[in-house]
């Protein structure tokens, strides 16, 4: 399937649900006039939409759910209101444990204050598992998704080639956020050139510029 055809097909579900912009709708209608096979895709999607809408997802909790919610709200409010009273009724035993906990925290703070500068001086015996990406976290960020068939080895080689590190993700939709040291626009171009691996890449550093591989 050509990229142009796929671009058009990606608009079709939103043509069917009536949410395209007038320009996009016109584009679909022009393509439809030139290629009647697109109508089959539209018919398929309309059937699919009808079935999704008919799908019985069971009864929602309704008024019972509202009662449950109102009870949870009341419980939460009671908890908030009773918090100071609970504090005044603390037993001497609990108070003793609180003092011990505070003392332990202070000790930990002191220990950290003493040992942290020593670690920083050595610098060679504690290395973050992320491999020193900390310096790039404030750099330029790119959002990227990979094609389902992409192999880890190939993704790794590509990221090493463009000097990018994964700083967040994957999200539930498979979006990774990359930090890059060099010009992020150039890196987006390089990523998109590997269309066998990269599905979409977007430069988050300079506003929205999301594109798909091959565009």
């Amino acid at each position: 399937m050509s990229d142009i055809r796929q671009d058009l097909e990606e608009l079709l579900p939103f043509y069917v649900n009536g949410s395209l912009s007038p320009e996009e709708q016109k584009r679909v209608e022009q393509a439809l006039a030139e290629d009647p096979s697109i109508q089959k895709e539209i018919d398929f999607l309309e059937q699919l939409r009808a079935e999704v809408r008919d799908l019985d997802r069971g009864n929602s909790p309704g008024e019972f759910g509202l009662k449950r919610l109102q009870k949870a709200l009341k419980d939460e409010q009671k908890l908030v209101n009773s918090a100071p009273q609970t504090g005044s009724a603390v037993s001497g035993y609990t108070r003793g444990w609180r003092l011990a906990a505070i003392a332990a925290c202070l000790l930990l703070l002191l220990q950290t204050a003493v040992t942290l500068p020593l670690w920083q001086k050595r610098g060679d015996d504690l290395i973050a598992a992320g491999g020193g990406t900390g310096s790039q976290l404030s750099g330029q960020i790119i959002s990227v998704t990979f094609v389902p068939e992409a192999r880890e080895e190939n993704i790794r080689n590509l990221l090493l080639a463009v000097d990018a590190s994964i700083v967040e993700g994957p999200s539930a939709l498979g979006v990774y956020r990359l930090s890059v040291a060099q010009n992020s626009d150039a890196v987006v171009e390089k990523l998109l050139a590997h269309r066998n691996l990269v599905e979409t890449a977007q430069n988050d550093s300079s506003g929205y510029s999301g594109r798909k591989a091959g565009q």
Binding site: E10, F14, S143, T145, L173, G174, V175, T200, Y208, G210
Partner: peptide
């Protein structure tokens, strides 16, 4: 298909680029 939302709004709900929404749907 049930909420009839535009892809831009779906992208904001699931916090991903608009192209990803279109590709997932495809």
């Amino acid at each position: 298909f049930f909420q009839d939302l535009p892809y831009g709004e779906i992208a904001r709900i699931v916090d991903c680029p608009e192209n990803t929404v279109k590709t997932r749907m495809f």
